[in-house]
Simulated scan of single mutants.
Amino acid sequence: MEKGSVSVYFVQSALDSLRVRGIDAEALLLDAGIAPATVQSPHGRVTPESFSKLWLAVAAALDDELFGQDSRRMKVGSFAMLAYMLTDCATLGDALKRMARFFNLLLDDFHCALEVQGSEALLTIRPAGQHDAPRVFGFETLLMLQHGLACWLVGRRIPVLAAAFCYAEAPRSAEYHRMYSENLRFGEGATALHFSRALLELPVIRSQQDARAFVRKAPGNIVIKYKNTDGLAAQIRRRLRASSAADWAGFDDVAAQLKMTPATLRRRLDDEGQTFQLIKDQLRRDMAVDLLSHSTRSVADIAVQLGFAEPSAFHRAFKKWTGANPGQYRLQGTGQG
């Protein structure tokens, strides 16, 4: 599986749940190996492992796996119980109906449902409480959990035909393309994932023993493993990842490999909110985060591997991406910062 990274936006949203309750978040950040400077950067990234540690720590501090987004707490252990319960279902459709009932029993401010419209099935979440504005992080967290569980139950990614959101588009929506689909709609009546109705007949292949292993690795495995891999940007990313950065093909060559004209490729990428340069920058960023976190290679060697002519250029780029320089990021990740 390709390594990835998680936007600092999700880290900030989780920490906001602590701050509004007067709980100091710095110790949890340090324990998760996340540099405070990274959290302050609008473009910061963290590893899935660090995000998982922080997610679990915040949930434990609040005793709430939905981070205070609902009037009632989703107590720690709820997600694990749900995973165990769903392994008894025969098909994906049965599991999604049971999952919706489970969340509707626990929560007051969100209403979950499985709906069918013609050839499509919809996993929907609607606001149910009396709030002036949608609790965006609550919708994001619920959608992430439900889609990740559904994919895990059948042992494959469920391709999302379209994703709708009951709130206005925000800058972080760029993350949604990789998480769900290139077809996004905002300001809709419900937050929903559209997928093929035929997939409801897929058999559930997981056991309770599988569930124990799955829960231990959540939520990092949900955020990264089942991201959208069907979009054009994802295809280009895989092609680039297959070779060293120094040997990456140019834009015109990639267009030829995909049997498109450069103009068509540029237009198709624009439809996904991407550019060729942005794809390369994001891939270098994720490779850098992974190498600094999981290898002992020197910063200079990593700079060369990622195609930077000088270590200083890598330092500048990495600080722009994450808010910390490479050395600081590595030390923080090992608990020495």
Rank of each mutant, 00 (worst) to 15 (best):
residue 103 F to H: 09
residue 225 K to A: 03
residue 176 Y to R: 09
residue 5 S to I: 04
residue 243 S to P: 02
residue 105 L to F: 11
residue 190 A to C: 02
residue 1 M to Y: 09
residue 30 L to V: 14
residue 179 M to T: 03
residue 296 T to L: 13
residue 37 A to W: 00
residue 33 G to W: 04
residue 144 M to N: 03
residue 322 T to P: 06
residue 335 G to I: 08
residue 69 Q to L: 01
residue 305 Q to A: 05
residue 330 R to W: 05
residue 160 V to N: 09
residue 296 T to K: 12
residue 60 A to H: 03
residue 290 D to F: 15
residue 208 Q to M: 11
residue 299 V to L: 02
residue 238 R to A: 11
residue 116 V to W: 04
residue 179 M to R: 10
residue 13 S to R: 14
residue 221 N to A: 06
residue 334 T to V: 12
residue 4 G to R: 14
residue 213 A to L: 10
residue 83 A to R: 10
residue 300 A to H: 05
residue 61 A to S: 12
residue 162 A to W: 02
residue 261 T to D: 01
residue 272 E to C: 13
residue 205 I to R: 06
residue 303 A to C: 04
residue 250 G to W: 12
residue 149 L to A: 07
residue 212 R to W: 15
residue 312 S to T: 06
residue 17 S to F: 04
residue 165 F to G: 00
residue 131 H to D: 13
residue 306 L to K: 09
residue 24 D to V: 03
residue 250 G to I: 12
residue 280 K to Q: 15
residue 252 D to G: 09
residue 13 S to H: 03
residue 50 S to P: 07
residue 236 I to V: 11
residue 278 L to C: 12
residue 182 E to S: 13
residue 297 R to Q: 14
residue 210 D to M: 01
residue 145 L to K: 11
residue 26 E to G: 05
residue 239 R to F: 13
residue 133 A to I: 08
residue 96 L to F: 00
residue 109 D to G: 07
residue 125 I to M: 08
residue 327 G to M: 10
residue 301 D to M: 00
residue 265 L to D: 10
residue 268 R to Y: 04
residue 212 R to L: 15
residue 229 T to I: 10
residue 184 L to H: 09
residue 50 S to R: 10
residue 87 T to K: 02
residue 156 R to C: 11
residue 269 L to K: 14
residue 31 D to S: 14
residue 14 A to H: 06
residue 253 D to G: 04
residue 147 H to Q: 13
residue 27 A to Y: 00
residue 144 M to I: 02
residue 249 A to R: 15
residue 54 L to K: 03
residue 125 I to D: 11
residue 270 D to Q: 11
residue 94 D to M: 07
residue 224 I to H: 01
residue 332 Q to T: 01
residue 214 F to Q: 08
residue 120 E to Q: 15
residue 131 H to R: 15
residue 285 R to Q: 13
residue 206 R to K: 13
residue 193 L to D: 06
residue 174 A to Q: 13
residue 328 Q to W: 14
residue 113 A to T: 02
residue 3 K to V: 12
residue 210 D to I: 00
residue 16 D to M: 14
residue 115 E to F: 04
residue 222 I to Q: 03
residue 313 A to N: 15
residue 128 A to T: 09
residue 12 Q to F: 06
residue 219 P to R: 07
residue 231 G to Y: 08
residue 295 S to W: 05
residue 312 S to W: 00
residue 146 Q to T: 15
residue 125 I to A: 06
residue 165 F to P: 00
residue 236 I to K: 04
residue 145 L to Q: 07
residue 125 I to S: 01
residue 134 P to M: 11
residue 252 D to M: 05
residue 32 A to K: 05
residue 222 I to N: 06
residue 41 S to I: 05
residue 54 L to F: 05
residue 28 L to A: 07
residue 299 V to G: 00
residue 29 L to I: 05
residue 285 R to E: 15
residue 148 G to S: 10
residue 11 V to R: 11
residue 24 D to G: 09
residue 62 L to S: 02
residue 230 D to R: 05
residue 151 C to S: 07
residue 167 Y to R: 12
residue 76 V to Y: 01
residue 3 K to Q: 12
residue 109 D to Q: 03
residue 118 G to E: 09
residue 301 D to L: 01
residue 143 L to E: 08
residue 95 A to S: 00
residue 319 K to A: 08
residue 108 D to L: 07
residue 236 I to P: 05
residue 292 L to Y: 02
residue 319 K to R: 09
residue 103 F to A: 08
residue 224 I to W: 01
residue 53 K to L: 12
